[in-house]
């Protein structure tokens, strides 16, 4: 029962060859991922707008509502339908969140409260996004 074997690919078909221990290339892969994380974080930190927190709610990439969070007087639960789904967006003085949604993955609800410029929560199935920008900040740096 000899299988096609190649010395450069010892895992191919042999039982013996899959005794795995980490190799130096694994560290290179890890370093590349960490470098990507660092670069993305740096580009994020650089582009975070300053100033008063403004929540922008966008649907299919179009802004449908803007709220200056510091000027919110009374808490409000905003009900909105997007795509096939229903959302409750909770707006309180200084902060905002997806309170509930009937979308399948619940990622938007799990994202929790947002109160600082740069914060973001999205429901991709419903194409609904809340992001916090800063008043007067150069918002378009981090948007398309």
């Amino acid at each position: 029962m000899t299988r096609r074997r190649s010395p450069r690919d010892p895992a191919d078909g042999t039982v013996r060859a899959v005794s795995e221990r980490p190799r130096f290339g694994d560290a290179l892969v890890l370093a590349a991922i960490l470098l990507a994380i660092g670069l993305l974080w740096w580009s994020y930190a650089r582009a975070v707008p300053h100033g008063d927190a403004i929540a922008r709610i966008t649907q299919n990439g179009v802004t449908i509502r803007e709220i200056v969070l510091s000027r919110v007087q009374a808490p409000e639960t905003w009900e909105i339908a997007s795509g096939e789904y229903q959302y409750h967006i909770r707006i309180e003085p200084g902060r905002i969140r997806f309170e509930s949604a009937d979308c399948p993955d619940q990622v938007c609800v799990q994202s929790g409260w947002m109160d600082r410029p740069g914060h973001m929560a999205a429901c991709v199935p419903g194409r609904l996004l809340i992001r916090i920008d800063g008043e007067g900040g150069d918002v378009d740096v981090i948007t398309r």
């Binding site: 991922i33 994380i37 993305l40 966008t58 299919n60 990439g61 179009v62 992001r131 948007t143 398309r144």
Partner: peptide, 21 residues
């Protein structure tokens, strides 16, 4: 692409990459 917002890449991707390790 679906949300029309590239900012998601720099906000969310680093966290996912870290967990992905």
């Amino acid at each position: 692409l679906l949300l029309g917002n590239a900012g998601l890449l720099s906000v969310y991707l680093p966290m996912l990459l870290l967990v992905g390790i």
